[in-house]
Design a protein around this nucleic acid. Structure first.
Lengths: 344, 344
DNA sequence: CTGAAAGCGCTTACAG
DNA sequence: CTGAAAGCGCTTACAG
């Protein structure tokens, strides 16, 4: 494998000139640079990663700690892992994958051996063991998600409260006054991350602010549970004209199936809005209006903030990514029977 | 951060002694080793990764190339990524994640910069671009899956043909003579990996060997498609008494739903076998007999073979992991009406 | 604008 | 059983 010495010899310059020509860290005569680049090309030279790590100030590797648990929703998890890897690559960083087995010990290992320049933390739980370790290590890190005690940390997340408020606003604007929320399974609220309650509470708060009636159910992942959950919503709010979904993809499909069974048309009889979904909602029948959870948004920002920290400490912060609404045609005004003053 | 010199000073030995005490590559007096380990402990010493990579012969990092496409089934994909990472860690290796964006260029990059000691290749397509690159690079690599031209490569995979044969045998042993196969969606067979056809062809071959009637359907991922597919099976083989599933988790659930709707009990009226599933099948109602695709099996073997290659070339091979059957109670003898000579 | 050289922190022959 | 030293391939002050 060609080394920097080979390149220097072929180009007829010193190794420092090769290094600078490649890094651009000092000005090089155009003709010299060309000779160097030509030699690099001809030799297929690639700087040795280990040597750069040792001599330089950074490794250009981030650790990605992405614990996977029994109740982790694989598609969303995968979307975030990939989005981090892609964002990192666009900043010339590689990603080292750390799993649940090594949640805290892996962080210590890669940080104290200077294998990585920093850490991206995924699937952040309310009380996450990794928080204390990262504080202790003092290594650059960005959390995607918000732990209970975020003091001194750099966190990025979708603004779930704002997303819930936006969902309510869109439906209120269409004329709805009674809105159901179909959330994740109860287990998701009980343990783990804080975004499901953040969305739920944001939903209730926004609804209250608008004087809107609500009902809330948490079905399990199977079809029968969804059926029962929808029945419960309609039982509690017979006048309900819209439903917000903050759940997994399969729940969306199941809800639409049940509505079809019951002869309820979307959006003529019931408006439906998919909130904070990390999957496409336009292959559903009908396609669903959505306020998506865009993994690329949070992950890009997280990587950017991690890179900033590599150059030196930055102000701790919780950065909330603003939600956006995409219309697909699954929201309409409520059917006449529900209007205060029926038309015609 | 403490260096090997700090440890040597505290322990009162030379840095080579520290190195050898830690690597065990030459014999050290017990008392000396204790002093070294004590110093390591007190200083919280961790060898610098870059320095080891540069001075040593290996980086202890594998690249994992795991392209994710629109039709990739996230849970299985995730299971394999995690299994590789876990197997690697148990061999003291870390895993660098390469995504679809960099499928081939990433391989060149990490291999020629000596960032990694080898490559684990996931989601292998029949004609996979990565095959040529890896041949060219001559870097240690293990494929999990089998490309069309596997000459010179080291590949590991479940023995899908044997799994299909085992599925048929189990059902034949229970008395079944007419068996349906519910496969993946047509798109999966059209492009991509070769394991779906390998299973399908193995199924037909084994059925033919046993003189068994078969039918085969490829439903899309949605509920209605599954309903239609089951109807097609029963239309083609009214005497069908067993079904083998080689498909995604949601298809399994949908099949069981439809059978329930139709009043068909499993296994009294119809036996069901889940084949090559990378998810648990015992939370279904009823739990399903299974010949699982165990990610940990293939991935552990793949990592082991990659590590062997780091020490020097090994014989190219295609290693097939033998399938195993787990009984859960979803297979029973066919109902009496289907027996050639009805009892009583 | 460019070069000679120190130094990053290890591993591993070489010597004893 | 242990130590002194070369060397891995870079980056980056230091000098000119």
């Amino acid at each position: 494998m060609a080394s920097i010495h080979d390149v220097a010899r072929v180009a007829g310059v010193s190794i420092s000139t090769v290094s600078y020509a490649l890094s651009g860290k000092r000005s090089i005569a155009a003709s010299t640079r060309l000779r160097v680049l030509d030699a690099v090309e001809r030799l297929g030279y690639r700087p040795n990663a280990g040597a750069r790590m040792l001599a330089g100030t950074r490794t250009n590797i981030f650790a990605l700690t992405a614990p996977f648990h029994a109740d982790t929703y694989a598609p969303a998890h995968m979307a975030f892992v990939l989005a981090v890897a892609q964002a990192a690559r666009e900043h010339d960083y590689d990603v080292l994958l750390l799993t649940q087995d090594e949640a805290t010990s892996g962080l210590r290992r890669v940080a104290s051996s200077s294998l990585v320049d920093g850490i991206i933390v995924l699937d952040v739980a309310g009380d996450d063991d990794r928080v204390a370790v990262i504080r202790e290590l003092g290594v650059p890190a960005t959390f995607i998600g918000i732990p209970k005690d975020a003091a001194g940390l750099v966190c990025v997340d979708l603004d779930f409260e704002a997303a819930a408020a936006l969902a309510v606003e869109k439906l209120v604007a269409a004329g709805h006054r009674s809105i159901g929320l179909i959330g994740h399974s109860p287990g998701v609220y009980a343990r783990g991350s804080n975004f499901p309650p953040r969305f739920r509470d944001g939903f209730f708060a926004a609804a209250a602010a608008h004087g809107i009636e609500t009902a809330f159910v948490m079905p399990e992942r199977d079809g029968p549970s969804v059926r029962i959950a929808l029945d419960a919503l309609f039982a509690e709010r017979p006048e309900m004209t819209a439903v917000v979904l903050h759940a997994e993809e399969s729940i969306h499909a199941a809800v639409l199936d049940v509505l079809r069974e019951r002869g309820l048309r979307v959006p003529q009889d019931l408006s439906v809005l998919a909130a904070c979904a990390s999957f496409e909602t336009d292959h559903f029948e009908p396609p669903l209006d959505t306020i998506p959870l865009v993994a690329a948004d949070s992950c890009w920002r997280a990587v950017t903030l991690a890179i900033e920290q590599v150059s030196g400490p930055i102000e701790p912060r919780i950065e909330l990514v603003p939600p956006r609404f995409y219309e697909r045609g699954s929201i309409a005004p409520p059917p006449d029977r529900h209007l205060a003053s029926p038309r015609s």
